[in-house]
Amino acid sequence: MRSLFSGNVISIESYVSMKEFPVDIEFYLEAIHFAGLSLDKEKTWHLLERLAKSDKNILILGETGTGKDVLARKIHAWSERKEGPFVAINCASIPADLFEAELFGFSKGAFTGAYREKTGLLEMAEKGTAFLDEIGELPLSLQAKLLRVIENRTFRRLGEVRDRYCQARFIFATNKDLKTAVKTGQFRLDLYYRLSPVQVHIDPLRFHLHLLPRLIQSIIEKENRTQALNKKITAEALQKLMTYDFPGNIRELINILERAMLLSEDDLIRAEDIQFDINFFQKNRPRNLSADRLRVVLEACRWNKTEAARKIGTSRRHLYRLLQKYNLDCFI
């Protein structure tokens, strides 16, 4: 494996032994987005493979940024339903008053503005997998409706009187402590038991900081291929990353490295290029970016404004101001 570490030469093996991984390293990294399941749990992988072959509900627990959605997709890919659709439903992003219509669909004339029928997300997941992310954010009023679907495997479109059969397999995920939510009355106990005949816990990245050199190398390799770059990271930059606890987990690590690769002046990522999200706004405000550096970011993002704003840690509105300031808005 070609090393991407520069400066003082660093041996990957000095940080982590390949024997620690229960499965092939590349498969492991792909499967759970470079982080996750405790590495001493080889049995977990066999269990997940067995679960994937069944239709049992699975509840994936883990902090924000640990890769719960990636693991859900991998379970779907292992399953007998892999040829069917994988429909991701973020329970926190759908307004409560629209949730039923989005989940179950509606018939023509069901309500004002329903000029034609609409297939719901559950029907779209037919013979595939319905992944309900952020299930802990679902309001109590909607929890009862979801419970009925899970228990009876039936639902009704809004405006219809006949039941439709739900053929989707359910995977749920949350970063909330559902047991505590049950105790405080925020989550139904009966729904909790229906969600979680099997629970899978994904570790936060800070539990496996010894893996950082290998994870960093994988992320840099991927970004080098995608952006046609040849970046390497210095020993000092790696050491700086090793002292951080990554509250945003692997998602934060990826953001930090992508940003460092975009903003580094040459092919070396140095310690000063590593800007942690927690203090990025204080030390590297987007307004201090030069016009040339902003253009580099935009070109790397193929002039995608949303992606460019994310890379430099600002909002789309503020990015527009920067574009106008440097007379770059004509290129958008």
Rank of each mutant, 00 (worst) to 15 (best):
V9A: 15
F131K: 02
A144F: 12
E151Y: 01
D24W: 00
L142T: 07
E151C: 02
K127W: 11
A101I: 05
I135Y: 10
S141I: 13
A309H: 08
I150A: 00
I58C: 00
E223L: 15
S14N: 14
N249A: 09
I25G: 00
D69G: 15
D177A: 05
G159N: 08
R287I: 13
R270T: 09
T226Q: 12
S315Y: 15
N288W: 13
N249E: 09
Q143E: 11
G128A: 01
L138F: 07
S38V: 11
E151A: 10
L215K: 14
D267R: 08
E102P: 03
M124C: 11
K222G: 03
W45A: 06
G62M: 00
L229G: 03
R188L: 14
F104H: 01
R50A: 10
G120V: 00
Q186I: 02
P95L: 05
Y244Q: 08
G185N: 04
R317Q: 15
S79N: 01
S107V: 11
T154V: 12
I150R: 01
C166N: 02
G185R: 11
E42D: 02
S17F: 07
D40W: 08
L215Q: 14
E117P: 07
I216N: 00
R81G: 03
A35N: 15
S38I: 04
